[in-house]
Simulated scan of single mutants.
Amino acid sequence: MARPSRKDDILQAALACFSEHGVDATTIEMIRDRSGASIGSLYHHFGNKERIIAALYLEGVSGYARLVEEGFARADNAEACIKTLVACYIDWVAAHPEWARFILHSRGRVEASEMGEQLREANRLHHGRIDDFLRPHREAGAFRQMPRDVFVSVVLGPAQDFSRHWLAGRTRSDLADCRELFMDVAWEAVRAQ
């Protein structure tokens, strides 16, 4: 396995600082100390704290997107595609709870930042790839009729809502233990009757 880059070290240090102290209370100096990077390296890679926040957010959501694409490559029918979306979401959140909490609480900040357009473009590309994978199944009539902008919310909404509660420590059930249930619920919600 390749050694993480200096940029990755800085992002992981930032995530640890944000998790421990909160985004607003974390300083560039705290991130520099935690990562062992020079201040020059930190500014070279990111420029400022807001760019670190945006880069960390974008890297997190791209990790989920990569899981989805890998899963779709193995999915051979409509049901498998829908269940892949849910499984990848739950797997990523369960494997990266601190990152998931950060993403949950930082979206608005990133959208409003100078990196907001980059986030919107990444989301547009990700949703476009999902739509491309699902198009043949949609055209074959595998899914119930609903507006496209509602579809992914119907598929992921229950898993995302439960994940928020799980990340906040408000659930008795473990997220990973509910994976199959949420996959089945998503398929039942969108399959053609």
Results as ranks from 00 to 15, higher is better:
L15F: 07
V154I: 15
H96W: 06
F133Q: 15
K49M: 01
E79L: 02
K7I: 01
F102W: 04
Y64T: 09
M146K: 10
S35F: 02
A73I: 00
A55R: 07
D161E: 13
H126M: 13
W99F: 10
V61H: 07
A73C: 00
G128N: 09
T27D: 03
D131S: 14
W187T: 07
L56F: 03
W166R: 09
V86M: 06
G63F: 04
R148T: 11
V190A: 04
I53R: 14
F102S: 02
S5D: 00
L134F: 15
D9H: 14
A16G: 04
A14G: 04
S163H: 08
A54H: 05
F151A: 05
E117Q: 13
E114M: 10
E29Y: 14
A189K: 11
A37W: 09
E69I: 02
A95G: 03
W92V: 01
L134H: 12
F143K: 02
V152C: 03
F143S: 03
E29L: 14
R6T: 13
A13W: 09
A189T: 12
G40H: 05
L67W: 08
S113L: 02
G157I: 03
H127F: 15
E29N: 13
V154M: 09
I53Y: 12
P136T: 06
E117D: 13
D8P: 05
C81S: 07
V110G: 02
E121H: 11
A87N: 04
V190F: 08
R164P: 00
R32M: 10
A55P: 03
V152G: 00
G157P: 00
C17T: 02
F18T: 05
G169Y: 03
R101D: 07
V61K: 09
V86Q: 09
G169M: 04
V93I: 08
F133L: 08
F182I: 05
E111W: 10
Y64M: 09
G63R: 10
V152N: 10
V152P: 00
V61C: 06
A87K: 12
R74T: 06
E59N: 10
H45T: 00
F162Q: 05
V155G: 01
D24Y: 09
F133W: 14
G36D: 03
S5K: 12
L56D: 01
I130V: 15
T27H: 02
E50I: 01
V61M: 14
C88K: 06
L125Y: 10
I82A: 06
A25S: 14
F151M: 07
L11S: 11
R109K: 11
F72T: 00
H165S: 11
Q145P: 04
L58I: 04
H126R: 15
S19L: 00
I39Q: 14
S38R: 07
E114A: 15
R148F: 10
I10G: 08
R191W: 08
V155Q: 02
S173E: 13
W187G: 05
R109S: 06
R3H: 12
I53K: 08
A176S: 15
R120S: 12
H137R: 11
W187E: 12
V68W: 09
L15P: 02
V23C: 07
S163Q: 03
V93Y: 01
V86H: 10
P147A: 14
A25P: 02
P147D: 11
C88D: 06
D33F: 10
